[in-house]
């Protein structure tokens, strides 16, 4: 069965692009635009990997990880995406349990390589 990726990002423009990218690469894809939506999706389908935008309309994306941890439904890896390249934001993501932090936009070849690595 193909691995399942949950994209948590509030811009449909960006989620559309990533959905095409991941489906064409052979993954199953779920999309959520808010923390609440992501939690709703997680109730029925467990993601193997989450691609997480850290700034979401209903809060800090990293809060999602805390809640998933409480529900014992954390994925194998969470890759964070931020709009700010500063090392403080980066460290905050790593401290919250993200496996990697990318600055948006992430070059697709690098992103696919890292996803493959984390799902191996």
């Amino acid at each position: 069965m193909p691995a399942r990726i949950l994209i948590v990002e509030d811009s449909p423009l960006v989620t559309d692009a990533f959905s095409i990218l991941f489906r064409e690469s052979g993954y199953d894809v779920d999309v959520a635009g808010t923390i609440a939506e992501a939690l709703e999706v997680a109730k029925t389908r467990r993601a193997d990997l989450i691609l997480l935008d850290v700034s979401l309309p209903d809060g800090d994306g990293l809060e999602l990880l805390e809640q998933l941890r409480d529900q014992k439904s954390l994925p194998k890896a969470t890759l964070a995406m931020t709009g700010h390249g500063d090392s403080r934001t980066r460290q905050k993501c790593l401290d919250a349990g993200c496996a990697e932090v990318f600055l948006k936009p992430v070059p697709i070849s690098e992103l696919l390589r890292r996803i493959e690595h984390h799902l191996a």
Binding site: S11, L13, V14, D16, A17, F18, I20, L21, E24, S25, G83, K104, P105, P107, I108, S109
Partner: peptide, 23 residues
């Protein structure tokens, strides 16, 4: 500036998907 980044990120990602022959 932040809001300009988001659609631009989508444009670049779509173009990369095409460029890399994924479609």
């Amino acid at each position: 500036s932040h809001d300009l980044r988001t659609p631009l990120a989508a444009i670049i990602t779509h173009a990369e998907i095409l460029r890399d022959g994924m479609l």
